[in-house]
Every structure is written in C-alpha cells, then in structure tokens.
Amino acid sequence: MKSLQTLGWSSHFESDLRPDDLTNFSLGRVTQVNKTNFLVRNTSKTITCELAGNLLYAQDEFDHPKTGDWVLYMPYSELGIITRVLKRNTCLYRKKPGSFDSKQVLASNIDYAIVVQCLEIGINLRRLERSIVQLKIANIEPIVVINKSDLLDKSSSQSAEIEEIKNKYTCFLLSAKSGEGLMELRTTIEAGKSYVLIGASGVGKSSLLNSLLDIEEQKTSSISSSSQKGTHTTTSRELILLSGSGIIIDTPGTREFGLAHDGEFSADSAFNQIASLAEQCKYHNCTHENESDCAVIAAVEEAVVPKAEYLNFLKLNKELEHYQSNVQERKNKGKKLSKIIRNMKKSGYKDRK
C-alpha cells in the first residue's frame, strides 16, 4: 500500500476494504469525471472506466464516483468497470445551482482547500467567509492565497483587507507570474495530502497550478478589461499529482457557492471572533439578532466586530437554516408518501379491478 500513499491512500480507506476486495478487484483513485466515463489512476497508470449497473442506476447522484474518490474496479479489456466507491473521508460540496435541497460534490477526500482570490478582481471578504463556512462543514482546512500581488498598492484599502485575512487564516500573498510567494506555498504542500483549488473565474487558479507544476499544462485566461470578470478556463475537476509532493484537484471557477448541510450547523465556527464572543452571551441559544445582553451585538456596536462581517454571519446562518428546512420538508413528504403506499398495499389495492 506504500505506493498508493502518494495518491493519498490512508488507513481510513483501508478500513473500508472487504477481505476479498483486492483479490477480485483493482484499486484506484478517480482523477477526472467525464459525461460517459471516469479516469482512474492506479499505482502505474491511468485507465478509462465505466460504471457497473449498481452504480449506474443509483438513485442519488451523490453516490456516483467523484473526482478524488477511491474506487474498486474490474479490468475489462482495455477498460475498467467501477463496482464500488470506498467510504469518503471528507467531501466538499455546495448547494446545487437551481436547487433548493440538493448538493453538488466538488471534490472528495480532501485535506486542505486553497481558496484563491486576486487583486485584479478585488478581494471579496464576504465571499471568502462563505467559502470558509462550507469548508468547516466539510472538515477541510482552508489556506488562503491572494494572487497577483504585483498589483498591490500598499496604501489602498486592499492592504488592510489582506492584513485582516492574515490575522484569521493561513494566508499566502503571491504572484504566479513573478514567482513571489510560490516557494513558501510549495513548502507547505505535504506529500500524500490532497488539496483542492477553489475560487471565482479568472482569479488565477490555473496559472497558480502551472507554477506549482513548473510546466504549462493548464490553459489560462485573463480578466476581461471591460467587465473585470473572469471566464472559465478549467472546464472539469481534475486530480493532478505534484512531483515529490501532494495531490492537487483543480476545479472550474464558481459563480455560485450556495451553502448546504443536512444536519444542524452554525456559521459560528468560521467566524472565530464571533464564536468567542458568543460564549459570553447571557443566553446559550442566543441568535445574536435582538437579544438583550448579547456580547456579539455589543461588540458590533462598539466597532470591535465589523458590521459587514456581522451581517454576513447572520445571512449565512439564515441560508443554512433555509437549506436544512427544505431538506427536512422533503424528508417529511417522503415519509408521508411511503406511509400512503404501505397503507394501500395493506388494503389490497393491487387486487382491485
């Protein structure tokens, strides 16, 4: 299994193997998901795979193999047939665009997320906070990269925003073009660990990946000078091995990053200062909206916590509550429908003419 460790293999996945799995099947990690097939990397090569019937007709798309998944497959001619997806260690997902209660997987079995913003578009603290909340839900550690540092005006408001980010998260200021900060980022990437690149279109994720690879493998695009918006360069999620280092999953730029979580979760854990203040509130279930003796509200009034950060905190919590409410409503409808079907069967509905 040592050779698999360079692909991110760990004891977590080994514990999900059955006694005869490695005798009957081959093992690999999904590097890319296409419309009709999957690319799977084993210890020596990448092969094209298709799904076995049990996965092909799975009701929940969430159960299909995703980029980063470990799978068991059966070699068939020059192809492979994926028969099982091993239990995921972590899973980064978002609310599926256009849906009220469905999730879309961005990548699985991730240890760290490199959240990229750039000075050309402008730093967006609120978008960053949104990303951090979803990463906390997924139990993935964030690393913030501020790209295109050559554009930094130290007298501008962006300089203050960068200092705020540095005080909260592991942060690197770099330029993929000049190479500034790249060596520092490289040294933090651990062998056998998996990293995912996330960020809006045009922030320089592909250029950053090129610099880490030292080769021009990824197509790159620049920001539109008229709209200051990026265009999608990476069109699919792809897992790439860094020579002698970790594993990087590149993702297309995301215009939407809706929050999603089935269970109860508060955005507090992504707002360290607010979470710390919340412990001082009079009521343990304080919503920090209109309660008396709320330490968070007091800190906002005293400008200890920026009002924009506080309002975003409330907004993200409301969004999570709304998603969870929609999920619960769907589950309740499903239970009612199942009960109706059971009662119909008991009453002999099938025998009626």
Rank of each mutant, 00 (worst) to 15 (best):
H12Q: 08
F13K: 10
F13I: 13
E14S: 04
S15E: 15
S15D: 15
L17P: 04
R18H: 10
R18A: 14
P19C: 05
P19M: 04
P19R: 02
D20V: 11
D20L: 14
D20S: 14
D21N: 02
T23C: 07
G28C: 08
G28I: 05
G28P: 08
G28T: 04
N34R: 12
N34C: 14
K35I: 12
F38W: 14
L39T: 04
R41Q: 07
N42V: 02
S44K: 06
K45V: 14
T48E: 15
G53W: 01
N54G: 01
L56P: 00
A58Q: 05
D63M: 08
D63N: 10
H64S: 02
G68C: 07
D69H: 13
W70T: 13
W70S: 15
V71N: 09
Y73I: 09
Y73V: 11
M74F: 11
M74G: 12
P75H: 09
P75Q: 13
S77E: 12
E78P: 02
E78C: 04
I81H: 03
I81V: 15
I81L: 09
I82F: 07
L86I: 04
K87P: 00
R88E: 04
R88Q: 05
N89P: 05
N89G: 13
T90W: 07
C91S: 11
Y93D: 11
K95S: 00
K96A: 13
P97R: 08
P97M: 13
D101N: 10
S102I: 01
S102R: 15
Q104S: 04
A107V: 11
S108R: 01
S108T: 09
Y112G: 07
I114H: 06
V115T: 05
Q117M: 06
Q117N: 05
I121T: 06
G122I: 07
R126V: 08
R127M: 08
R130M: 08
R130Q: 07
V133M: 03
V133N: 02
Q134Y: 04
Q134H: 03
L135K: 06
K136V: 09
I140K: 12
P142M: 04
I143E: 11
V145E: 11
I146P: 00
I146Y: 08
N147A: 09
K148D: 10
